[in-house]
Design a protein around this nucleic acid. Structure first.
Lengths: 135, 135
DNA sequence: TTCTAAATGCAAATCACTTGCAACTAGAAA
DNA sequence: TTTCTAGTTGCAAGTGATTTGCATTTAGAA
């Protein structure tokens, strides 16, 4: 893979990100360093990085493709349904039962994803104060 | 909800389906009974049915919205990455640790999804026979 | 430095999904 | 039963995300 100016920017953004980013979010961040970087370049590079195992794709309920750095510790995602905040959950309850699932289904399972949805601590607080009237 | 001819057809398809169907798959099946049923009608009704809790939406890696009957036992999905076959998995390892996750994250978790990907028994067999040359 | 395959930016295309609108219809009211 | 009307439909056009074609640029091997 030729290390172009654009690729350096994109790789850095993905590797620094605290949570999965959409192609557009990545482009917006990239524009701070290189305003001419095209959205199609973002998509083409994300595709290549997926092939090379440099990043991973995730989809939450909204159906948007989001991308995060590969090579992180195995984890899953927690999404706040009120503010959209997304964070990693390092706990995985599947490893222990994967063999059991394979035996029961006859599948050879190669990977899995778990997405959890709910209210983050902040939105939870807001919701409570709205109900009681005590901020 | 007015029980139109189209709605009867759509509800029947979703309630009979063995696995989650995309809007287009639903329309194709519906056309066997009513070839004039429009795709926009499918989408509009799926949306209404989601609101009323008559069906559920799921997204796998391809990002397509798929729909299945609501009111089924809590379950997750297993997708064959070779042939696309999708099936329900009635096992859920999350219930036991949901409280633990809530305590660790501070979130109030309302919903979750687990998707497992791998090779189904048939595709597993095919893959083996391709490698050995013995069908 | 030269050369070329790979990569880029731009514009147009595609795909899943949504929306505007005029015509139709379920089902409540007369 | 007929009338009426808000809810629903089909069609066509519109979105928004993602992909593709193409002429131009460029990384990095020779």
């Amino acid at each position: 893979m030729r290390m172009t100016r654009q690729r350096k920017v994109l790789l850095e953004i993905i590797n620094q990100a605290a949570s999965p980013l959409s192609a557009e979010e990545i482009m917006l961040q990239a524009h701070q360093q290189d305003p001419s970087l095209a959205l199609s370049t973002v998509y083409r590079n994300l595709e290549k990085m997926l092939e090379l195992g440099l990043c991973q794709q995730i989809r939450f309920q909204d159906g948007l493709a989001r991308f995060e750095q590969a090579g992180l510790v195995h984890h899953h995602h927690l999404v706040c349904t009120a503010c959209g905040r997304r964070e990693a959950v390092p706990i995985c309850p599947l490893h222990q039962i994967q063999q059991q699932l394979e035996a029961a289904s006859g599948y050879k399972i190669t990977y899995h994803e778990i997405n959890l949805y709910g209210l983050c601590p902040d939105c939870l607080k807001k919701q409570v104060s709205e109900q009681t009237g005590h901020p």
